[in-house]
Design a protein around this nucleic acid. Sequence first.
DNA 1: TAATAATCTATAAATTCGATAGAATAACTA
DNA 2: TAGTTATTCTATCGAATTTATAGATTATTA
Lengths: 142, 142
Amino acid sequence: MSNMLSKKTKYAFHALTYLGKQEERTPVLISQVASKTKVPRKFLESILLDLKKAGILNSKMGKGGGYYLLRDAKDVLLADVIRMFNGPIALLPCVSLNYYEPCEECVDEETCGLNAMMIEVRDEMLKILENKTLADIINAEE
Amino acid sequence: MSNMLSKKTKYAFHALTYLGKQEERTPVLISQVASKTKVPRKFLESILLDLKKAGILNSKMGKGGGYYLLRDAKDVLLADVIRMFNGPIALLPCVSLNYYEPCEECVDEETCGLNAMMIEVRDEMLKILENKTLADIINAEE
DNA sequence: TAATAATCTATAAATTCGATAGAATAACTA
DNA sequence: TAGTTATTCTATCGAATTTATAGATTATTA
């Protein structure tokens, strides 16, 4: 019973924070990120790969390889990371902007009070999560 | 992959809304609530029972029995229902007020930027969810 | 006491989450 | 160009949680 962020999402934030704190943008070994952030190595691999596919990280293979941050930390929104690993930010599929799905039991969305209320909640949540960035996390660290 | 409300939570809101809209506070059959809200009958049973135990509903057994709203609709906070059926409102256990748990990987909560950030997010979410009530849902319906 | 309706117990099906193993591919260096 | 290093890909597994159903039991009323 839980509405919270998955471990994967939390791990993603830890990894991003670690990479974002590097002075130079030189590749960092997966194994180094894993040991420093205490994220299980193999699990971390798939997380970093997803972040690469999303254009947030880049990687270099072979000797001297590893992962590094591609964007500026202030351009990585909390909402981006949450959507990627955790799914919708909205509390119900029927009010999700990016993952919309109608409710099976719903006769008419227009007159559903729950729908109306959850739209309000969603908009408030977006106000926060689309205005906070990885840079804010890193700043709070120092 | 989802941060959303469970079906149980959504069903609870539907059932509460239906009961809250009754003119008189006379008992309504489980089967009537089930058919009107399209919530699976047996699943609904356990939801209504939980709401009774929480003091939000009351029930009457035998002929003419059923469930009815005990509190005033404006005194049923969205946050109450979500906490009961969905768990914490905070996005991480380490920033939850009602379900606090430390993170395994965390060396020091004081210096964790993610922790700091999620406290901000939590407080904003509580501002909304503790100020909206069942009455707001019902009003939005008309 | 018969009918009605909530309550309790148990369990089954489906989905999601967290984690791991091993093979394949790419890049550097000597 | 051979060998080493490190990312990338595929595939799967177990555990936990969520959703749903079935049947027996208890309380109430007429």
